[in-house]
Amino acid sequence: MENQKRLDEFQAKIDAGIKIEPKDWMPDKYRQTLVRQMSQHAHSEVIGMQPEANWLTRAPSLRAKKILMAKIQDEGGHGLYLYCAAETLGVSRDQYIQWLHEGKSKYASVFNYPSPTWADMGAIGWLVDGAAIVNQVSLQRTSYGPYARAMVRICKEESFHQRQGYEIMAEMAKGTPEQKEMAQEALNRWWWPSLMMFGPHDKESSNSGQSMKWGIKLESNDDLRQQFIDKTIPQVELIGLEVPDKNAKLMPNGSYKTSDIDWDEFWNVIKGNGPCNSQRLKHHKKAHDDGAWVRAAAEAYGKKQMELVD
């Protein structure tokens, strides 16, 4: 049992806004929560490269190709910052990846949907990155120092992602009838999955209370989701597309009321039954397995170099 005095001191630090650093004492549950959340976050960035990489060879202009490459590279970079931050909790990257492959560690379910048209590149940037940013801006103030610092860096870099996605959608929405249709369909596809990104309702989110008390989470799932909805609906209307929710309605307080999410689908995809769950994991495992001999070579060569120095 952890003694109450230590717990109280820990809580006092959090309440005073003092960041927790890797070598500081922390409750086991705090560490476990971070291990789970940060690795999930890192995996999401890395798995998130896949639906976009799917369009890299087909990007329609020099400009679009460069942007998409830079963006995918950013996502991978963010995964890397997060793995490195998560490793300060005493778990190795190798272990995190093993958990991912064994299905013990999750990633954002939103990446288990396919990206059949170029408009999906727009919708992913605009909606998926847009939803992620709302969450990440909030996490810049999270109580674990390495996580907060990684978030600050990530938010700075992510700022162009949502804009590039919206630009693609805006361009297509005013393009040929076929393009507009593709844009609307992509919006329809990604609207609900991006709202699901904020997680279950607060009342059903088992870890939320404690995470908020410990300053790991700063705002509730429903609050963050509402912020995103309120920002996004006017953007949908501005480019002449339709919100794929007949019940979406502007309330007198300036906020939008929307239909409830299909929670069966949400839990189903989390459990691994989404359209691309198995494809995404297989892709990641294959790259990892195919790379094993390269890593072995680099390690062997690295050791020889060190011996030469010694």
């Binding site: 890397l80 910052y81 490195c84 931050a85 490793e87 990257r93 190798d94 610092r149 990684a150 860096r153 890593r295 680099a298 390690e299 060569y301 690295g302 170099q305 060190m306």
Partner: peptide, 27 residues
């Protein structure tokens, strides 16, 4: 994926080096 290396960057000449994060690498 190789041992962890801590990375320090100097933003421009004359400024102190600041810790920015880490990378994995074999050499």
């Amino acid at each position: 994926q190789g041992p962890v290396w801590e990375v320090f960057i100097q933003t421009k000449a004359g400024k102190p080096y600041r810790h920015v994060g880490a990378v994995h690498a074999y050499d």
